[in-house]
């Protein structure tokens, strides 16, 4: 896959489960065109994606249910193509075309 920055938007799939979908219009799967670079020209990485989701996709005003201290709140796992984002470089991972990003809120019920 090319490492050159692309001018085009990056098509990705973002999914929410474990109750997070309730914060995103009760919709589990979102197909997004992520701008290929951030506000200050920085790469479109997962840190940027989290901010982008919070500002552009999340209609719910309870932002603290998704973001605390600038990153996803404790109790949410971020999975990039079904792997823990910490295996992929965490919030510095640069999103590629057709990536699947899944946000899972931990459940406690039993």
């Amino acid at each position: 896959m090319s490492t050159e920055p692309s001018k085009a938007d990056v098509p990705i799939v973002v999914e929410f489960t474990g109750g997070l979908e309730l914060l995103f219009s009760n919709q589990r799967k979102h197909r997004l065109l992520l701008p290929s670079s951030g506000e200050k020209g920085q790469p479109a990485n997962t840190a940027f994606l989290v901010r982008y989701l919070c500002e552009n996709v999340m209609k719910d005003k309870r932002k603290e249910m998704f973001i605390i201290d600038g990153t996803v709140r404790p109790g949410i796992l971020v999975l990039i193509n079904d792997a823990d984002w910490e295996l992929e470089g965490g919030d510095q991972y640069e999103l590629k075309k057709n990536d699947n990003i899944l946000f899972v809120s931990t459940l406690h019920g039993g």
Binding site: M65, P74, G75, H108, G109
Partner: peptide
């Protein structure tokens, strides 16, 4: 989960509901 979820985000089966076959 090094840090626990904030209490406000913790939902029980009594509050959120649960389908029998799922659990």
């Amino acid at each position: 989960y090094p840090k626990p979820s904030p209490p406000a985000s913790v939902v029980t089966c009594g509050e959120g509901g649960i389908l029998g076959p799922v659990v």
